[in-house]
Each structure stands twice: as structure tokens, then as C-alpha cells.
């Protein structure tokens, strides 16, 4: 069994007006609340337009993750920004596809790609 199975770490940094949120741990109802609080607080304080989730440390996500992402999407949209996901593993891809999330939140193979996309959006705006 994984160590500290129901613990989650959230690392948040600002880079080029993107709020980059790295989640390390599972995303379920239990952890989603903690992630939501931390991300919303950081987003409110920041002047970031876009939000990018780095999922390289996420091995598991259930529908709580969908709710979490849609909620953040609504917040970020109110500032005219976008939400993107980077480094999502294959298993999470299924739930991402079923949920219809891909229509509103892009998934990128790397953080670098997600940041470039945000940069392009800014250039067009």
C-alpha cells in the first residue's frame, strides 16, 4: 500500500501569469476539499489569468476530480482565463474523456506545452 494513501500535497507557483498547481496524491472527495481551498486562496491572491494543473503526481482520480476541475474552470473563466492539465497519466485519460471535460479543459503532454498554449492565448487577447 502506498505510504500515506489519503494524504495529498499541493504545490502552487506563479510563472508568467500562470498559476501552476502541482498535485501529489490521489484526488477523491476527501482530498478534493483540501486542494480546492488551497488553489482558490492562491488564485484569489495572485494576478494570474490562467491555471495549469500538473498531474504528474496524480495516480488516481474519481469524479470528485471532475467537480474540482469544473469548479476551478468557472473561477478562472470569470477572469477571462483558461484551465489546462499537463502530464495526465493514461488511466486518468478515461475518466477525462467520459466526463466531457476535454471540451473545456485542454490536456497537454508536458507543462511546457501547456504554458506555451497559455502564452498564445495571452498574445491573441
Amino acid at each position: 500500500m502506498e505510504n500515506g494513501a489519503n494524504a495529498v500535497d499541493v504545490m502552487i507557483l506563479e510563472r508568467n501569469k500562470n498559476l501552476i498547481v502541482k498535485i501529489m496524491g490521489d484526488i477523491d472527495q476527501h482530498n478534493a476539499e483540501e486542494i480546492r481551498e488551497k488553489v482558490d486562496k492562491a488564485f484569489e491572491r495572485s494576478r494570474c489569468g490562467h491555471m495549469i494543473f500538473d498531474f504528474s503526481g496524480v495516480a488516481f482520480m474519481d469524479s470528485s476530480g471532475i467537480g474540482l476541475l469544473i469548479g476551478r474552470y468557472k473561477n478562472v473563466r470569470s477572469r477571462g482565463g483558461t484551465v489546462a492539465i499537463a502530464n495526465m497519466n493514461h488511466d486518468l485519460g478515461r475518466i477525462y474523456n467520459i466526463s466531457g471535460l476535454k471540451k473545456i479543459i485542454g490536456s497537454f503532454d508536458s507543462l511546457d506545452q501547456a504554458e506555451k498554449q497559455a502564452e498564445n492565448r495571452r498574445a491573441r487577447a
Partner: peptide, 15 residues
């Protein structure tokens, strides 16, 4: 209000 997505049963049925 709990940001539930309403996808729980759909996911169970799909998986």
C-alpha cells in the same frame, strides 16, 4: 454546493 459532478453512477456503469 459540494462541487459534485453528477458523474458517479455514470462512471460506475461505464467502468
Amino acid at each position: 454546493e459540494l462541487e459534485r459532478s453528477g458523474m458517479g453512477f455514470t462512471i460506475m456503469e461505464t467502468f
